[in-house]
Design a protein around this nucleic acid. Sequence first.
RNA 1: GGGCGGCUAGCUCAGCUGGUUAGAGCGCCUGGUUUACACCCAGGAGGUCGGGGGUUCGAACCCCUCGCCGCCCA
Length: 912
Amino acid sequence: MLEKTFDPKSVEPRLYAAWEASGGFAPIDDPNAETFAIVIPPPNVTGSLHIGHALNNTLQDVLIRFERMRGKAALWLPGTDHAGIATQMVVERQLAAEGNLSRRDLGRDDFVAKVWEWKAKSGGTIVNQLKRLGASCDWSRERFTLDEGLSAAVRKVFVTLYKEKLIYRDKRLVNWDPHFQTAISDLEVEQREVDGHFWHFAYPLEDGSGEIVVATTRPETMLGDTAVAVHPKDERYQHLIGRAVRLPIVNRPVPIIADDYADPEKGSGAVKITPAHDFNDFMVGKRNNLPMINVFDDFARINDEAPPEYRGLDRFAARKKVVEAFEALGLLRGVEKTRHMVPHGDRSGVVVEPYLTDQWYVNAEVLARPAIKAVEEGTTVFAPKAWEKTYFEWMRNIQPWCISRQLWWGHRIPAWFGPDGKIFVAEAEDGARAQAREHYGRDEPLRQDEDVLDTWFSSALWPFSTLGWPEKTEDLARFYPTHTLVTGFDIIFFWVARMMMQGLHFMDEVPFKRIFINALVRDAEGKKMSKSKGNVMDPLELVDDYGADALRFTLTAMSGQARDIKLSRERIEGYRNFGTKLWNATRFTQMNGAARAEGFDPATVKLPLNRWIVGETTRTAKAVTAALGTCGFDAAADSLYRFVWRQYCDWYVELAKPVLGKPDEPNPPPEGVDREARGGDARRASGDEAARDETRATAAWVLDVILKLLHPVMPFLTEELWGQTAGLGAPRAHRGFLMTAPWPDLPDSLIDPAADAVIGLIVETIAEGRSVRSELNVPNSARPPLMVVDATAAQEAVLRDAEPLIRQMLRVEGVEIVEAAPAGAIPYVVEGATLALPVAEFIDVAAERARLGKEVGNLAVDIDRTAKKLANADFVARAPEEVVEENRERLADAEAAKAKLEAALERLGAVV
RNA sequence: GGGCGGCUAGCUCAGCUGGUUAGAGCGCCUGGUUUACACCCAGGAGGUCGGGGGUUCGAACCCCUCGCCGCCCA
């Protein structure tokens, strides 16, 4: 006997350990099985599980469990990302907190050793948190981006692309993060709107004949100005082009040049040009052969290019000092407040500087071409499809990708410099040495590039590096291309696009066939969760409070095509209740002897009730299978919820009660077993042993199907119920965990329209009757008979046979077939049949008149609308025949029902 | 400035390629010791589908336009 409620706290750890120990997370060995692989978006080793991870990994687990049960060789390959900057930051902070030496004092090797130490100790946090969610990853294949194997892949890719000239070294402006003293890529730059100032500076003409005014938000950059530009067609400045100004403070002459970049509409129309510190100015500088003067050091302090009193000043201190100097010189022409976009490092949060350095770049444009084509041709599809636009937009305008980082934690760039700066690129040092020997004719000392690669460089290889590439492993042959990638839209550019590029380049095949972009989880008010706002919902806390299944079901159900999910505790509670409901329904059927029957075949059940639920189960299985097959997670959850609660629990179990129980109740005469002819036979089931046994077997069968269908979303609860019901009746064909049980594959022939009609009539009779009672305030204790006033012979038979059910569920004393309803009986119409409840003594005539009036009114509106439609010759001529026919039937039904209710209304008048 | 989403019941959202009386959950109201479940049961109220125009026999759905709200890229 089951406990009263499901206890996730005790069940979850036990089941997870058992699953893991069983080896069931690994793909099956069968070489003929179709494969289905997912590579996890590797969380940062520094990470801990947030709600976004919970969503992302729940969906992956739903898919992998579904496909595993479908008999595929399902692989969910887990791992973590070394996360260059993030991890280096964490460890540096820890060193500082412990009062240890700084990174620089420690030196590179010792620092990196410290990071590995940290990783060994704290790097597994998120992996354990994933387990609490129920993630069925194949942990035996877990990888880390800095593993030896993955590092070998990184080196091989670097060397290959270098040889193909798709990786090159270039001196250009990069986004420089002065906090970490490293270059970062465009994508790691966040534009933030901040308050600032526009300072208007006067630059005196060199010959003393006047001045030209320029405006800037970054005064300190003027120390590196090498020109002033005006628009070539700007009338005001024609006479100045080719002349020069004397740069204040620096006291250097700089030319006045003509360039389209200057916008005559803005400010004075003249603009200062600092090619070494501004991306636009850099282009102007290139076009006009201007010198590029870098005035910063790596910390964005002023360097020796500036006058001595500025050297060593932080950029913001220098800014202040420059403004003061202009004011003192009488050259400050104005200050305006402004709000403007300023680039910030996404990790450091400090203002990023355009900075002129030598870096390594990937020619992304070339790599992007096949990646664009693959999506255009549908080799890889996005779901929802709308994201393809975002992908195309970026890929078609892609910029060179800066891949070198001046960090210590990461893949060291496999490039060595000779004494003269000549570069030798090889997978290992001896290769570089050999090249150098060849080049110089002798051994020369080589120095390896100090830099490491952008973290995303190694993540881009994830779908094949984790499978063993560049080795030709069995896994690689078997599981590449993977099937589905589940990820967030925030990393389409960072990661998805780059995996597409690298996968196609090195494997000649797309890395995945489908990319499902999941939504962003927000708080109940729709705000992005963030620590600073304090609105973060900790998934582990939610798992503690409601169980992993409730959280999983919630995330699955809310994961529609929308861009965000507004998560609230009420919602999770509701789905926790759903789990409890199924638990209790199981408990109930177990109490009533539900048990699997040996050789049970759902096609051969006799009772309409059982035939009906078998059909509904089939419909649900079809719907869930179709939905999960197309990433329709919300639709799958919805079908399950409605079926389990609204059909199985509310109707099937309720209707089965009289059949299952009270075996001592006298059996009705077992005459005429001709079910078909009579349209149904529910009553004779009551107390009848065959009927009872059939219902017990059917209930057990339906439950097993439910457990299977629900398992991908609620793995713990279903597995627990599977285990708890293992001993009830005949053993299951599948002896192991539900996790590896075969997915239901039910033929349409199990759907029986005749049974649907029988149960439909019974259900409607009860539901409508309840509605009548409730609206007229008929006391619960009243037990009138249900009168069948006007119905077809088949309907009469169904209702008569269903008497025990109707008696119990509608709280009536019996079902009577009558010629006419007695005065004061309350009529209602179900599927063309007129039924009545003689409850005149309880009712308020006015209330009943109102009720009937409302019904008649509703019908009149419907009749009117439908009649108009049918009166429209165009409609009859142009609409499909079945639509017209449907409307004709509808009109006839509504008119008949209306006539009956109007007659009742008249009789009501007569009563009073 | 360019682009992408969204606007449907008090709240959160479903509504597939145009044909339903526009649905669900939560909340609300009424009633409930009924072979499991109060994390429950029964019933009910509540929507001119953001505004306007168009296409169509027929529009929540397609087209145009306007208005908010959100996100991405400049």
